[in-house]
Design a protein around this nucleic acid. Sequence first.
DNA 1: GTTTGGATACCTGTATACAAGCATGCTAGA
DNA 2: TCTAGCATGCTTGTATACAGGTATCCAAAC
Lengths: 224, 224
Amino acid sequence: MKQSSSTRVKEPTSAEAEAYSYVLKRIRAGELKPGVRLRAEDIATQIGMSRMPVREAFRRLDTEGYVTIRPNRGAIVTDHTFEEIQELFEIRSVLEGLATRLAVEHIGPPEIEEMRELLRRMRKGQKNAEDWLSRHWAFHEYICSLSGRKRLVREIERLHAALEPFLRLWFFHANRPVVAIRDHQELMNVIETGDAAKAEAAMREHVLITAPRIIEFLQRRDDT
Amino acid sequence: MKQSSSTRVKEPTSAEAEAYSYVLKRIRAGELKPGVRLRAEDIATQIGMSRMPVREAFRRLDTEGYVTIRPNRGAIVTDHTFEEIQELFEIRSVLEGLATRLAVEHIGPPEIEEMRELLRRMRKGQKNAEDWLSRHWAFHEYICSLSGRKRLVREIERLHAALEPFLRLWFFHANRPVVAIRDHQELMNVIETGDAAKAEAAMREHVLITAPRIIEFLQRRDDT
DNA sequence: GTTTGGATACCTGTATACAAGCATGCTAGA
DNA sequence: TCTAGCATGCTTGTATACAGGTATCCAAAC
């Protein structure tokens, strides 16, 4: 019970890392909206450090696409155009397709069972947007990780994080989980057959099918 | 003729940008070999600035995969394992495949002619490794850019840059250009047919075919 | 009333100063 | 002679200070 006073409970590896995850978390959660200006000074004081580690975090966030640094004019939360969102979905589709194809040969009965379990959890989390989002990603991540390709999974994770705010918006306003569950069920059916090429194609299609839905939603939203 | 004295000929936008391109250039050129330690202080003095912009450049280079920052232990040039190189080729193959598929509908006679010209230049540059490398990339980049997808091209460019040192090594020691030219010719033939799906498949195969060759070469090299 | 120019305040970018962690080498003991 | 422990020097990481650029606001002129 008396571990706290001098012992730190959860030591973040570095100030930069703390700043990074703090900002990213808030962007992913949609708290920091696209176009919003990020003042290093403000964030630094919020989490109790100087501007410097925050600046470095900005650099990382910039190369990863979450933040856009404008020379001499500070950083803003990246505001993706519809074309860019479309592009992110396209890239995600081929990368997840690749991961799925490579995963197939590592999929046996226990993996199938795990996927079923993840799908069940998704179904149960339909009511709550946050639950659904995290469980949906858990499902995809599990399949991708079965490819055994670490770098690939990392790239996919990045794309997913970039798209998450839009998925969230869409999920909150339009109400599409029912259809989504069916889509995932069908995807699983194909993967279960063990046909790598078909699984790849199915995953591609599965990812791409969401793009026009979301973009149309965002466009309608912008008009009003 | 008298533009120089007070006017700067080529103003690098910022110190960070200068540090970034300086380090990346030396990594891509193979001057800075994998595993080599990067001391911010040294690089800073080499190009006449303080450590700080160099640190920030390191962050970017780290997220892009060229450099690995080890907490409290400085930065080193990323030393890819064979598995990672394989993975980079796999990712490149699907992304360039995607770009090619999307490019097909924007390819008409003038684009075909341009591609032929780039191929001719590649053929002429066979003797010199640097010429061949840059022209080879120019050929691929042109096709990818026809997709009209900026982000996609950027990602592909990154992968290419990461693989460049290995391509260079391979090109210098093994002598592959003859076979390589034929491969590219065949790739072009498929693209010319205007069949998007076939073009995608051809580009995928084209990119992947190099992977085992290079990896085998690197492995033999490591053994000695 | 609108637009252009300039002054000022603020913010960004870079340098330097300071603190903390890691590595190397030396000493002492087995 | 070899190993363990400690001290010291060097490098990294963070904070602060300073310089340079940008934006905003107000005034003056068209």
